[in-house]
Design a binder for these strands. Sequence first.
DNA 1: GCCGTTTTCGGCCCGACTGTTTTCAGTCG
Length: 574
Amino acid sequence: MDQKNKELAKIFNRIADALEFQGANVFKIIAYRKAARVLDELSQDVEVLSKTNKLSDLPGIGKAIAGKINEYLTTGKMKKYEEVTKDIPGTLFDMLDIQNLGPKTLALAHKKLRVKNLNDLKKAIKNGRLAKLPQMGEKKVENIKQGLDLYERAHERLSIAVAQNVAREIIEYLKKNTEIKDISAAGSLRRWKETVGDIDILTTGKNGAEIIKIFTKFPMTERVLAAGETKSSIIVKGGIQVDLRIVKPKSYGAALQYFTGSKAHNIKLRNIAKSKGLKLSEYGVFKGKKMVAGKTEKEVYKILGLAYVPPELREDRGEVELALKNKIPKFIEMKDIKGDLHMHSTYSDSTATIRQLTDFAWRFNYEYILVTDHSQSAKYAHGLEPKRLYKQWKEIDKINKRSKKSRVLKGVEVDILKSGKLDYPDKILKRCDVVVAAIHQGFTKNVTERICAAMDNPYVDIIAHPTGRLISQREGYAINLHKVMEHAAQTGTWLELNAYPDRLDLNDVYLKIAKEMDIKISIGTDAHSIGALLWMKFGVAQARRGWLEAKNVVNTYSLKKLQTMRKINKNRIE
DNA sequence: GCCGTTTTCGGCCCGACTGTTTTCAGTCG
């Protein structure tokens, strides 16, 4: 989906890399990067915008870049791209990801030492020639070498679940061993981004150097990258980088705002500050030399004339404009969730019995849960043939008899088979309270058509993990998500936001599109253990990042309402 | 290369840290 959007984003980023490498005008580079980001997150098809001459309406895309987009869409090529990348070996671009090795140094090494790839770089380090270049020295080379080590350890972005755990441990450690008052994770972790590059932690305290000394002695520390008075970076076990910043209490809000980002969001804010004759930095909002705000984030936004923007929204996807007009809606929260619509029991491949699932789930004050074990073809997951399914239903009936307040619903996660048929006949699906359908086989075979066919079935309520991606592990199915979403809107089928941290599928950008298309979303944990029921929070955070309000999410509705909203009932009522 | 309630030219967010320097460049966030 949006293949061209992504392709063009990559190309513009590559052009930016090349220009950086050549030492071109910094602002030109920024312009290309911005265009790349806008395209990457665009909720419309770039080809449609191109045909209707609307490209230049997009922020960051002017006449020149619009022209390049049109050129690429019509000819499949872009002269500028070919020109700037002509003399740079492709392998060099990837090397820009090596820490402490920036475009300037890499260009110099390329020019003077003919470094073209990782091996060349290693040689240049070993034989001492890199250290002899101007502005270089032993320590710089040592830092590059360490960056190279990290890079070679397949430095991947962390899943948000892992990052949250590490951050929690460090915060607890610092609280125990130092005299700090305010402390918080910042950065993409605080924005609940699905993956996190490194962990940012912000705190206030009097003796910065002392706090940093203790920070660098965190038991899991592998290496200390920097340790100053107010700022320190360490690498902890697993190659995870953790940055700590210390500010004065009066700057805490401004600093939290600043270090939470995103960068694009912050740049917008700084521009707004400027237009009001103010200056915004991590130390506060200043009018001339006088500090006028900074203790809390709320007052920072307020003095800029903006409504408070929740961290999950801060991606420069229109939230600043909304905040200027004071039109930030009330987004979904954990307390809106009335049930979990995707989980497994020991009947198929989970470690939790239905009894355990219910006991645990009722702690969250849910009104209902939907048990959705795998269907018969999913042999690997001990999928249920009809006989065992009926047995499970009997057990559910028993449990429901005892509970007055909450209800266990009978569901299935029915496989969409390679043939395009569903793994249970309609007469079984008909008897379920809610039906979840999903692809678990044939990831490349007519996936779009098969999912659409499943949505045509009147008993299928939800398509689970619609793209099938596993973050950092597997690309999604070969699927035309545009078509799938259109068909979901037409048939009134709900799409899942799978809260499993490695899935988070649909992602934030598509959720926002789904909202615009008035498609209802179902958040399910896909729990295979009782602990995984807690993952609902990742789903809700992702939903907020996709601008979803409670009304867009079916499991914020009461059970009664939920039932009337099913396809089969809706048709009868409306 | 983008953009406009000072502007169609001249800005473009702002600062910390490090290492190599003798006043600053490169990198990072």
